[in-house]
Nucleic acid binder design. Structure first.
Lengths: 215, 215, 215, 215
DNA sequence: CATGAATGAGAGTTCATTCAT
DNA sequence: AATGAATGAACTCTCATTCAT
């Protein structure tokens, strides 16, 4: 039964890659890429270091594989969700937070891994640096399109620049995810606060008078 | 003049420590703590690796020293600014963003170093992990006091929990700082967007006028 | 028909061994034994690493097998050629160069493999070291017998020691083969030069040419 | 006394580099480059692996350093010896053998290292492959110039091509050196045989006059 | 027969750290 | 006060080898 055998092997292979990837996601999110050793990853799935090199040719390639997965799972479905026709820009931005937080809770590691790597490789121009930048650029693009469209329809304040709004959304989102992992925090509450803030600001609204100048 | 000489030596010592610290701040912010080698730090100030051990007993102690500096410069003055009697909670939160961004632009490295370390050592319980948690806890405490006080005075929505508001503020602030460093972004614009969002939300509110119905 | 099947299997087995050996010869000659991996050898014949262990119990045994082949093909036929009764010692030495060069051109890998291994394992006393020494000793013995016989018949200068003449022949021959592979060189020209040198030296002698008959 | 100290350190450095290089020369000649580990080299001089990286940034760089030394000591002085005005081409070729054998006996490792590396890296185009080819090309060039000049003066047979004569000289020389190391052989006798062969061939010629003294 | 998964010993390399000077 | 030499532990990576299928 060669087909069965082949199938079994393929399964095994997929399973091993899967387990190694999951372990790597977790460890990288917990300790960072540089502080995570292949030894730890291997041990986490009950293999030896050498096994990693059977599936990935280097530590860097393993990480690139994780980025592929994360991009696929997160950015792709994000784009799919947010580029649909319906909904206002604000709806979509809120959806972005919800989406992220959903991932952050159900599948936290892929999302956090992207954030972690974007921080660790912020200023590097090697393969990983380029890859993570490309991934983030996709996110920025999706958001900026939403914002532009919203602005056209008058759903957003005209005096706030697109690029900086997108950055604010990403910054808040990533910061929120990190914060969620930094403290033991009620994720749902956190999202609710962020959503509220983004929708209404923190100000008590029926505002008595126009301009309260800060500072 | 042994005293004079001693004085001179002390000065020299301070100067060396100062220069090493600055270099370390920059490199850690750019590359992360784990990816920064003592070699690089030493070279950046024209010394050799060995010299660092004359001033700091280990790489870890060097980092702890940086954390001391950063706490002193940032958290202390932050607390001083924000615990003053005047101003509403919102004013102070806005000031928090401004304060951070000011530091982020004038003396970016100390602030970013705190953020970087809080991410790299998020889940560690060694000396550094404990230290960075302690520093962040001070920040949370300051913010939560402000928020509580504001809530008492009715300046903040009652349905948003203090802890999560503080987390949102910190998350947004840290995310914003990282974002500022991740992209080439106009820092002032970014702050303005964040401030606006926090104050008013992104929603187009029934601004005072529109309501005026025709006729 | 189990016998037929068995026969077929045996054939297949021989064929696989044959192909692996050829690939190994080539790769070892090109890169050296240590720098050649079983992976490469397997790939060169479209197998996997593991398959090699079905035919050879170790990399070392594979090499020993190659040495067997090379000894069989080269040293045996060399001995057969050179120990025949006819011809002077000089004829036979020339034949040695020709023989070598013939192998070197038609079947270069076996011969070069011997040379390569004799260099890589010169100073080792493991199985391979002993084997290659034994093979070379056979060659020396054949040559020394020829030389001794020639000396008896007065065909060779008396003042040159047998052992060193044999070494010179081997040295020149091996050096020539390596050189032939090191540069892009016209093999036939090279052999001609070597033969001429060995027969007449490089000195311009009042050559016996006199044969030119008068008139 | 900073100068003394500096001097001492410089001495120490030179000494360590020297010792490491010598050990590396020997081991590479005995076992080949690939089969020699940095561990062994370090142990041979009573250091640890790490020390090697203090002086050389990689195993490859260490080898390149050895090649520099060897080129300097051998090829340079070879060129100096052989490009002098006096002497016939034959004298110089004989001198080449003598020179080589002198090096081979007094400082055998540098010369043998060149030969060894030329064999191990014959077919590679990395930094080492290029380096060793460049070194050999210098040798060929020197020899070919000598041969050409000799041919002009009628000192060499006209029917033998320059390139192949040079190759024969190099091949014989290298082969001789390897042979010298392969067997326990009387080096002087070996050189004498080679010299005689090159001058007169192995044929018993009606020697015109007894002694044409080489050198 | 042959594969592909996995191992484990050991290689080259990095880097914080020590220490004599 | 500072250097440069050297260490040693830990890392990434390689490769011959084993084995279930």
């Amino acid at each position: 039964m060669p087909p069965r055998k082949a199938a079994k092997n393929a399964e095994l292979r997929e399973d091993s890659i899967q387990r190694l990837s999951q372990a790597a996601f977790q460890l990288i999110v917990m300790k960072g890429y540089h502080a995570t050793t292949l030894q730890e990853i291997a041990e986490a799935v009950g293999m030896t270091k050498g096994a990693i090199f059977f599936y990935f040719t280097s530590k860097e390639r393993l990480l690139l594989h994780l980025l592929d997965i994360a991009e696929d799972h997160i950015v792709n479905s994000l784009a799919a969700h947010l580029t649909s026709a319906e909904g206002t820009a604000l709806d979509k931005i809120v959806a972005y937070f919800h989406f992220g937080s959903w991932h952050g809770i159900e599948r936290p590691y892929e999302l956090l891994c992207l954030i972690q790597i974007s921080i660790e490789f912020r200023h590097r121009s090697d393969a990983i640096g380029k890859r993570i930048v490309a991934i983030y650029n996709r996110i920025y693009r999706v958001l900026e399109e939403i914002i532009e469209a919203g602005r056209m329809r008058g759903e957003l304040p005209k005096d706030l620049p697109t690029r900086e709004i997108a950055s604010t959304v990403v910054a808040t989102h990533d910061g929120m995810m990190l914060e969620y992992h930094r403290r033991e925090i009620d994720g749902e509450k956190l999202v609710r606060v962020v959503r509220t803030v983004f929708l209404q600001g923190l100000g008590l609204k029926p505002r008595p008078k126009p301009i309260r100048r800060a500072r």
